[in-house]
Amino acid sequence: MTGILGHARTALLAAALLVGGPTLVAGDALAAPPAPGARAPASNRVQIGVMVVYANNSGQVDPRLRSLQRQLEMMRFTGFKLLDQHDDTLGVNQATTLQVEGGRRVQITLVSRDEENAQIRVQVFKDNEKKVDTTLTTKRGRTVVIGIGKYQDGSLVLPVTVSD
């Protein structure tokens, strides 16, 4: 898994960033999003769950994050504390926003969804300045962990779960 797939992903990512043109969106194959503001039918809605985790090297692990610990340790941290938890239901083109420690704001938008996957856009703002804007497609019912920057002696990490 570290070989072809890993390098392919890196190349894909680098190409998308280097070109700077139209974003390479695998989600293009997904269903076309409805018009902005239109209320999505219930079947098109997804549940968005976001945890705000302070990762550090304190060695202290929040009991609620025990199951996440193995994944979070991959980022070389030893301590994890759950600062906040945010849950929302989104239709296509609907967004949810949460304020995060360190003057950050995170906005998650459901771009599209099909029977199996969901495409979401994640934007991270720091003092109202956009620092990150990424779109990713993930299988529903799965959790993707997104780190959003340094905080105190560690970093802030957002496990984002997209489910039905």
Binding site: L68, T138, V144
Partner: peptide, 25 residues
């Protein structure tokens, strides 16, 4: 296994997530 305190979390495997676009400051 389900996450204690964050029930039923399952991490996406490498084949279950695709970075479609990434723009940073």
């Amino acid at each position: 296994v389900p996450v204690t305190g964050a029930s039923d979390l399952v991490f996406a495997s490498a084949g279950e997530v695709q970075i479609d676009n990434l723009q940073v400051g």
